[in-house]
């Protein structure tokens, strides 16, 4: 156990220092964007590296949510409150990106539904939802 602790302690210290730096005043203030980019790239990877069609759609969803998060973080004003008019509140966060994303979430679900319907249809036509197997079947039909 001691060996394990001594291994993790410097790591933990480094992480805490990094986090404190990123969240402090005067830090680059771009950390949230970088996490969002990491999320977006994870979604992108799922879409291009996997053959399973359902998983591709899940990847698209991850990508979508990361774009939504990007908009919402841009709308945040430090010290601001939710954009609902009330007495005694001076600073509101920007309501416009919220509206855009509200619309985008619903449209995203509509496209997801359409994609999943296509997956079901492909499964009925080919008997598989793996991209490479479908391609093999197609090539077999052409030959």
């Amino acid at each position: 156990m001691d060996g394990l602790n001594s291994f993790f302690e410097p790591l933990q210290g480094a992480w805490q220092a990094f986090e404190a730096f990123m969240l402090s005043e005067g830090s680059p203030g771009l950390f949230s964007y970088w996490v969002i980019i990491a999320l977006m790239m994870a979604g992108f990877y799922i879409v291009i590296a996997h053959d399973n069609l359902v998983k591709k759609i899940v990847g698209l969803n991850v990508f979508q949510v990361s774009v939504f998060l990007f908009y919402i973080t841009m709308a945040k004003v430090s010290g601001g409150s939710a954009p609902i008019l009330a007495e005694g509140i001076e600073q509101y966060s920007n309501p416009l990106p919220h509206v855009l994303i509200l619309t985008a979430i619903v449209v995203g679900v509509a496209t997801t539904a359409l994609g999943l319907a296509l997956v079901v249809r492909i499964r009925n036509a080919y008997g598989t939802i793996e991209d490479d197997e479908i391609q093999a079947i197609e090539e077999g039909e052409d030959a």
Binding site: I101, L102, I105
Partner: peptide, 28 residues
Amino acid sequence: LDAVDVAFTEAAVGAGISTVLMLATLAL
């Protein structure tokens, strides 16, 4: 991040309806 309207749309539509649709697809 102060976007309460977006939050409950995401919870209802993103987490709810999307998941149900995907589970239905898996069943089929």
